[in-house]
Design a protein around this nucleic acid. Structure first.
Length: 410
DNA sequence: GGTAAAGCTGCCGAAGCTGC
DNA sequence: GCAGCTTCGGCAGCTTTACC
């Protein structure tokens, strides 16, 4: 069986290979190109099944066997307070939505030194555990969390951390694995065991049949139980960020707001009307990407989804850019903002369109550009839009700005 | 009213590309 | 070869909100 290991950072690929059964397999390592927006020379060379995972956002590593992806890995060293831990959530979801198990490595806490304050641990928002569990419940595919090794458990006083200079993080000393977590840490050895379990199951049953069996395997059951326990023991609730920024309203309020776009020829379609209530993610900020795309994806799984596609939601999921007021008298919404406008969204889309070469004459296309042209013929601008535009328009049933709105009819 | 947590955003660096 | 641009990821300071 032939393995291919797609990586963003080669040293991290080396780290995973050396610590798992992959080291004994026949494999090749390949550089992963993330999107047609940020790497127009090479993205089109990515195989179709990898492109599908990259559609929403690119993970740090994808392992495939005989052209079938078997798991993806995302690693971060950021402090996971507030909505930061959800920043990478869309890429975990993108993997699982393509039936590919995902691993998320994130520190339990990171030392942050602020001005005029002693160094202290910024701790993870435990709601991430609930969000990942909901993903597993819906897709029946593992989406597992492991702590990036830190001094947090052993050095509660941040100032005493031997790795204070690295914000309390424990990195692997092997220079071939530069920037990777400490491989001998118990969290990492458990993760390697789970990866080996996947490799073993897939080799015995094949990738398609094998992945349906994974959730019932003991190392994965145990990890899922640990994640649920962490949610509870760390005081997780359904009120913390990003759920602290949502409102639930009767859908009629939304329809009453959108009526301004209707006329005798056009009426809002059936999708929004099909759900009685609507969840609104309120962001009164300047229009931007991270951390909002990941937070929006997490809200979908935590509150709205009941099935594998956005059509199977209990509630509409919409995003409001601006200061939202719910007008209970007139059963509608009002939005004001000096920070964001619909033009911020539209300008981003237009900027992405500049990456498209579909309007060129054949004589204008260089030979090396032809495969990229041909990819765009098939997929249009699917892969050439910037990440946050792709993620927002995938997850949100509607996006409202004070001066303009976008919505799905079906 | 004070403190801690949550939320927002300006700015920075890395990587990779384009154009001269 | 180099300057400059875009995209992405990330840090941490500032502001707002929540809580006691």
């Amino acid at each position: 069986m032939d393995y291919r290991i797609w990586y963003s950072i080669e040293s991290f690929a080396n780290f995973i290979i050396a610590n798992t059964e992959l080291r004994n397999k026949t494999f090749v390592k390949k550089k992963m190109y993330e999107s047609d927006a940020n790497n127009i020379r090479n993205f089109h060379t990515m195989p179709d099944h990898i492109k599908k995972i990259l559609y929403l956002d690119a993970p740090d590593l994808i392992v495939e066997i005989d052209h079938e992806p078997i798991f993806s890995v995302e690693v971060s060293t950021e402090a996971g307070t507030g909505h930061n831990v959800f920043q990478r959530f869309a890429r975990l979801a993108a993997s699982v939505e393509n039936n590919v198990p995902s691993f998320y490595i994130y520190p339990e806490a990171v030392i942050i030194t602020r001005q005029n304050t002693a160094p202290r641990w910024d701790r993870i928002n435990p709601l991430i555990f609930k969000a990942l569990d909901d993903v597993m419940s819906i897709y029946k595919i593992p989406s597992l969390f492991y702590y990036f090794p830190t001094d947090y458990k052993t050095h509660n006083d941040a100032f005493t951390s031997p790795n204070l200079i690295h914000k309390g993080l424990r990195f692997d000393p092997n220079r071939n694995y530069a920037g990777s977590p400490l491989g001998t840490d118990s969290e990492m050895t458990l993760m390697f065991a789970a990866m080996d379990e996947i490799v073993g199951v897939v080799e015995r049953h094949g990738a398609i049949v094998g992945r349906d069996k994974l959730l019932s395997k003991r190392p994965i059951i145990n990890r899922r139980a640990f994640m649920n326990q962490e949610f509870v023991s760390k005081g997780g609730t359904m009120d913390t960020s990003p759920l602290s920024a949502i409102e639930k309203i009767p859908t009629q309020y939304l329809l009453n707001y959108l009526i301004r776009f209707e006329n005798s020829q056009y009426h809002i379609g059936e999708l929004l009307r099909s759900r009685q209530e609507t969840i609104i993610y309120k962001v009164d900020a300047k229009f931007r990407g991270d951390p909002y795309p990941g937070a929006l994806a997490a809200i979908d799984y935590l509150k709205c989804r009941e099935g594998k596609s956005f059509e199977e939601r209990r509630y509409n999921l919409i995003m409001v850019w601006g200061n939202l007021t719910i007008d209970n008298t007139n059963r509608t919404l009002s939005i004001s903002s000096t920070k964001s406008t619909i033009n911020d969204f539209v300008k981003s889309v237009q900027a992405s369109e500049n990456k498209n070469i579909l309007s060129k004459d054949y004589s204008q296309i260089s030979n090396s550009e032809i495969p990229r042209y041909y990819m765009q013929v098939r997929y249009g601008s699917t892969y050439s839009k910037v990440k946050h535009i792709r993620v927002f328009s995938y997850f949100a049933d509607a996006i409202l700005f004070p001066d303009g709105s976008l919505w799905r009819d079906a």
